[in-house]
Amino acid sequence: MNLNLTLLGQMISFAIFVLFCMKYVWPPIMAALEERQNKIAQGLADAEQGAQRREEAEAEIDQMLTDAKAQAADIVAQAQKRGNEIIEESKTGARSEGERLKLAAQADIEQEVVQARESLRQQVGNIAVSGASKILGQEISPDSHAKIIDELVEQI
């Protein structure tokens, strides 16, 4: 236990080291630590915000998907309905067209029958007249006997 001037020397060097530390060591390290703390806090806040945004976007996507699905189903249903309608329409069209064609053909046939009957009657009249004239040996004027011929024709 011999106290001497060393004590004073130690106090002076201690003061110098503390001052040095206070001026050149502590402030920059503290500033960096604080800055990093802020950076990390900012990063965490950003991450949280990002997560929230992602959640929102996911919800939006879900909504859009549901909408699109509903729309697609709607379109398909509409198309099916329209298709059925078209088929139905063409069926009806075809049926009526067939009906019309049939009717037209029948009318034609009937008209032909009438024509054929008419010409047949004409020919039979003529044949009858020529036959009769041959039988009678004389000319029978078609004009003078037109009445009789007509009656004959009516009877055929």
Binding site: C21, Y24, V25, I29, A32
Partner: peptide, 16 residues
């Protein structure tokens, strides 16, 4: 030695 070590760290300190 203490001052030198810590000054060296303080000079190159980065918040990254």
């Amino acid at each position: 030695l203490f001052c030198w070590l810590f000054k060296k760290a303080a000079d190159n300190v980065t918040s990254g």
